[in-house]
Amino acid sequence: MATISKNTSSSLTHINSKGEASMVDVSEKPNSVRIATAEGYIKMQSSTLSLIESGGHAKGDVLAVARIAGIQGAKQCSQLIPLCHPLALSKVQVDFEIQPDNQRIRICSRCKLTGRTGVEMEALTAVSVAALTLFDMCKAVDKTMTIEGIKVLEKKGGQSGDWQRD
């Protein structure tokens, strides 16, 4: 069995010294404003994208539904990801950018709180759930859609400081 080192900067934070899954104790960390931004894409046929953009989809405003789903996803993150802390989010924003030249929609989320742990997982979950909702609502007209490129773009606050993807 592999040995796991304790709390070094390169060790996994959700694994204890015995190699067992463990929720990180954040009770000693100071509260700070924390913000995370994530993005992802859903690629689709041009005709599907046009249907969404024109508002002509039989299911209605699919972007509005996906926005609400993404917000709900962020709020439910700790229910979905076993070792995530339940967080009192102060802001969840989900935006869409239709990119017809690339036959896709860019999904961007921003999560914010004042607390002891970051909101990267909540931002990623918001993007993921919004993308899945778009897929669900459009699968009857386009079975070829793909969800791709989900990643954290930026995080602010906390002990490790600010970080931004190049």
Rank of each mutant, 00 (worst) to 15 (best):
A2E: 04
N7G: 01
T8G: 04
S10I: 06
S10T: 03
S11A: 10
H14C: 11
H14E: 04
N16A: 08
V26D: 15
V26Q: 14
V26R: 13
K29G: 07
K29D: 07
N31A: 01
T37E: 09
G40C: 13
S47N: 12
T48W: 03
L49E: 08
L51C: 11
L51S: 07
G56Y: 01
K59L: 07
D61I: 08
D61T: 09
A69R: 01
G70V: 12
G73W: 12
G73L: 14
A74Q: 06
Q76A: 15
C77Y: 14
S78W: 07
I81K: 05
H85I: 05
S90D: 13
Q93N: 05
V94K: 01
E97H: 15
I105G: 02
I105N: 02
R106T: 00
I107E: 04
C108N: 15
S109R: 06
L113R: 07
V119K: 08
V119G: 08
S128I: 10
S128M: 13
V129L: 12
A130S: 13
A131M: 05
L132K: 13
L132W: 09
L132H: 13
T133K: 10
L134I: 13
D136H: 06
M137I: 04
V141P: 01
K143W: 05
M145N: 10
G149R: 13
L153D: 03
K156H: 10
K156Q: 10
G157Q: 07
G157T: 06
Q159T: 03
W163M: 10
